[in-house]
Structure formats: structure tokens, C-alpha cells
Design a protein around this nucleic acid. Structure first.
Lengths: 183, 183
DNA sequence: GGACAAACGGAGTCACCACTCCGTATCGTC
DNA sequence: GACGATACGGAGTGGTGACTCCGTTTGTCC
């Protein structure tokens, strides 16, 4: 039995609103704020996502989903080195003003969450492929593991968005990821 | 008029407890928890630090103080390159299990806080000196600014402590800071 | 278009937390 | 050791936020 049309619509609206609000105000944002943004009552939010944590998981899963899409799209690029670094740069830049993103990633790292786990695996695999190809092409050190790439993404996502100046920011980002390249 | 002996003692106990509790449970930890840990009443906590934010600032200032001490101690090391990288490594490793530390640093970056500002300047200057010497010795790229070094510290503090394996963690750290070295 | 299930809204509940207030204890001074 | 000043403890207050409950609305199916 598929859900009623309005239910599906509202679920999407809530997820969307949650993403925006978490991004703007951090993970501490209240459920009511999210409900208001979505144009629904709090009851509706809680019907779709029984706890705040469940909502966060869902938001996170959605983000990881697009991350995986990105990585998979780049899997057969002509220049594997460029592909990996492009991916890294875009991933971090995309989360520029989004503090919540890094927090969510952090959460993902710990929780053996039911919702998040499968998507997480997909991302790991896709990034693993990018990494592998980049290494084979000699663009990345041989001794780098996927986990370390995620550590780089995590760290850069945290640190780099704080830099206001555009040029300086992208320079710092490039510099940071340079640590992955062979010497 | 200097403060009464018990007052000074309690102030120190609270500051110490706050540091421990924030470190263990994050910035969301309650004031009562801190009071209990310090072995004093909540009233005492608030008498010494009128708001929770003031307490956080004080904790942060204390941390920055030791950071500055570290940096200044290394200012005339024989090998400037090693000195800078030592400092970076130790700073991050020292904050290993301390999530609160990175949060606090983040806060420091934003706030033009009365308590924190002067210490901040001291740290910046000391690290600036280390950086300068390392650059002159050819151990660090010429185009690196102090702000970028802080970004690296910030990012690494966030990302690296998540790695459980000791060897892998320090390898990642080294790799991350390698981005600062000339190519 | 009527009937029934599914979903909605939002006032209400409960727990928690920053912060206050004041009777009591401790310190420093003579 | 006595006395005033200073600091302490912790019950109390106000506000906020996650989550519940139920009377009302909306979608769907015949």
C-alpha cells in the first residue's frame, strides 16, 4: 500500500525544510522551526520522523545519496587524478556555508545507523573507485586509504568554509588536498 | 583588593572541571554537571562566570594560553621546519579526544570576545614566528599565511581524532600537513 | 458524492537547563 | 575569639524544546 499523496508530499517538504534549517542554524535548531519552514504542524514532522535523530539520519542519508551520485558520475573520467581532486573540491565547496553537513558526516562516522549504513557503503565504494584510479594514474600517493580521504574531506569541510575570501579559500583547499599527492 | 582564598580556589576548580566536562561531553554539558564535578554549588559557578558563555570563553582562553606557551617555547629551535611541524602535530594530538577543543577554536574564530581576543593575538604572533622561520628555512611553501595554518589545525583537529588506529592516525596527520610543504 | 481510513494541526505535557536569591558558612582582621 | 565582609550551597523560577493526543480535515475508492 503506497502512502497517500499528501503524506508523500509533506514528507518531502519536511525533509527539504530540515535540510535548510539545519544548514542555516545548526543541528540544535528546533523541530517547530522546521515545521514552520515546511508549512506543516509539528505533529506532521513527528509522524514522518519519530524522533529528531531519525530526521537527522534522513537528511544525512539524502546528502550522502547525492555525494554517491557525484562520485559515480566521475568514475570513468578521462583523467582520474583530476576526477578525484575535482570531486574533493566540489564536495567541500558544496558544503561551504553548511556547518551542519560536517556535523552530519561526523555523526555518520559513528552511528551504525540503519538508515545511513547502506548509503554510506555506496559512497565509500564510489570514492574508493575514484581513489584507486587516481592512484593507478600516479596522481595520488599509493599509501592513501579511503578512510583517509574521508578524513581529509571532513577536516576540509570544517576548516575551509570559515575562510571568507574566495581566492584564499580555494587556495587553502588545494593546499590541503596536496597532501594526498605523491611528493 | 585580592580575592578571598577560597574564592580563588573555587574559581580554579570550576575552570578545571569545566574543561574536563566540556571535553568529555561537549559544549552542551549542563552547568550543574560542571558544578558537581568541581565539588561546588551551581551558585558558585555563576558567581565566578556570570553566563555559560563567559565560562566557555575562560576555558578557551586557558587553552589558547597553553598553545601560545608551546609556540613561544619553540621559537628558537635549531630546525625551524621541524619546529613548526612538531608544534602542529602536538597541538592536534593533544586535542585528540577533545571534541570540545575544536568547537572552542571555532568559536574563537568568530567572537570578538573581550576575554579571548588578547590571548588570540599572542597565539597568532607566536605561530606566525614559527611559520616565518620555517618558510625561511625552505621547509614550508612561501605562499602560506598564518590564517591557513590555523585552518589546517582546525581541520586536522576535527578530522584526525576520529581515526582509532594510532599509526594510521599519525600517518594521516603527517599527510595532511604535507600540503604545507613545498613541492 | 458519500463513507471510511489515513493524515493533519497545534495545544498540551514533561523534562531539562540557564540563571537567581537568600539563609548559612567561611575568611580575614583586630 | 569576635565581628563584618565575602563567598557558598542549592532550592526555586522561567523559558524552551522534544514529543503526544485527539478533534478536524483531506484523500481515495466505490
Amino acid at each position: 500500500m503506497s502512502p497517500r499523496a499528501d503524506a508523500a508530499r509533506n514528507r518531502a517538504k519536511v525533509l527539504d525544510a530540515a535540510q535548510q534549517v539545519f544548514t542555516a542554524d545548526g543541528l540544535g535548531a528546533s523541530t517547530e522551526q522546521i515545521a514552520r519552514r515546511a508549512g506543516v504542524g509539528v505533529g506532521t514532522v513527528f509522524r514522518h520522523f519519530p524522533t529528531k535523530e531519525a530526521l537527522l539520519s534522513a537528511v544525512l542519508a539524502a546528502r550522502l545519496e547525492t555525494l554517491a551520485d557525484d562520485a559515480e558520475r566521475l568514475a570513468d573520467a578521462a583523467d582520474p587524478g583530476a576526477a578525484l581532486f575535482d570531486f574533493l573540491t566540489r564536495t567541500v565547496e558544496a558544503s561551504s556555508l553548511k556547518i551542519a553537513y560536517a556535523d552530519a558526516l561526523e555523526r555518520a562516522g559513528v552511528g551504525t545507523d540503519q538508515v545511513v549504513a547502506p548509503v554510506r557503503e555506496r559512497v565509500t565504494k564510489a570514492v574508493g573507485t575514484l581513489l584507486d584510479r587516481a592512484q593507478r594514474a600516479g596522481a595520488v600517493r599509493d599509501d592513501v586509504a579511503v578512510g583517509q580521504v574521508f578524513a581529509f574531506i571532513h577536516g576540509a569541510s570544517r576548516a575551509v568554509p570559515r575562510i571568507a575570501d574566495d581566492a584564499l579559500r580555494s587556495a587553502t583547499l588545494r593546499m590541503m588536498f596536496d597532501g594526498l599527492r605523491p611528493r
